[in-house]
Design a binder for these strands. Structure first.
Lengths: 167, 167
DNA sequence: TATTGTTATACTCTATAACTATA
DNA sequence: TATAGTTATAGAGTATAACAATA
């Protein structure tokens, strides 16, 4: 097996590597959406391999970042910012709390809500993830070169345009 | 609720829309990887909303396309082309067969393998999905404009560069 | 009544490992 | 021994709906 020789950790989606064959991909290679998906998967795997934190997927990294950047953010706001339903967040936040990465405090002025804060351990982990993320993005920068700004601008434009379509 | 007014079908990930607040996203907005994820999610949702086939996610569309383009492709080859483990494919292919969208034939010269073919119903569905996919990609083309070729080239470069890192 | 967060439930996707049947 | 495909098992992620506590 020539499988995972130089790969560090590949928590999910390890295969995909091996070259196909004389296979036709039809119209897919002309579709932006297809390449977005391929590219996002490749980026995710590369980040996961680098970070070596099998339980810290991009979505969790985003959650930690949002809490770190906005201490005291509530779960509902967090759910909107991260684009997931609030019920989706509950198990994740419980898990992160169980790992001692974050804590929450009840808001006395509105006892329905909780404010979220990173613990020192959470800060440490976030810093480590940031480090890997920076390195990963430097890789991407190298690949993309001078086109980075334009690329991000394009991706943002697509994201916002598509989101506005169905408001 | 201003939720899904003009949305057709949003099988998964329906929220995400509502604007955040005075929230800081830290370094995320500078990260290509972050925007890839946001963009891919937005593209996926827009496609799903347009196609209105809640069970036909991009991955399944890719599978149908690959079989349609390469009649007689075997499951193992298909799994490599679609970037998923062969065991992952089994339930999906069973489901697609149960829906009458594809069929398989044993290869007599190697009775371990099966060749996959679309049924007429599968061809019809694929044509319909192609139609939606084309429309969706025309939307993307409009958003991206003259940059399409450059964008795809960049995305491909990222995908292949990252994939080669860990061979 | 409306909102915050939880629970209950369900489904999809994905993986690895062990298995079978064939080669 | 090696390969094609299945089964068993597991886990993450996501959704909707109903609920309790609070506003």
């Amino acid at each position: 097996m020539s499988k995972s020789s130089r790969k560090l950790h590949l928590p999910e989606g390890s295969p995909a590597r091996e070259a196909p064959a004389n296979i036709s991909y039809g119209s897919l290679p002309n579709k932006i959406g297809f390449h977005l998906r391929m590219c996002q998967e490749a980026s995710f795997r590369a980040f996961a391999a680098r970070a070596g934190e099998p339980d810290m997927k991009p979505q969790r990294y985003t959650i930690l970042t949002l809490i770190g950047e906005n201490p005291g953010i509530t779960q509902t706001v967090l759910s909107r910012c991260s684009g997931r339903d609030k019920s989706t967040l509950t198990p994740t936040l419980n898990d992160l709390r169980a790992r001692g990465l974050l804590e929450r405090r009840r808001i006395e002025s509105d006892r329905r809500s909780f404010q979220l804060y990173l613990t020192p351990e959470g800060e440490t982990l976030l810093a480590r993830l940031d480090h890997h993320s920076d390195a990963h993005d430097r890789d991407l920068d190298t690949i993309v070169g001078a086109n980075k700004t334009a690329l991000i601008r394009l991706l943002r434009r697509i994201t916002t345009s598509l989101a506005q379509q169905d408001v």
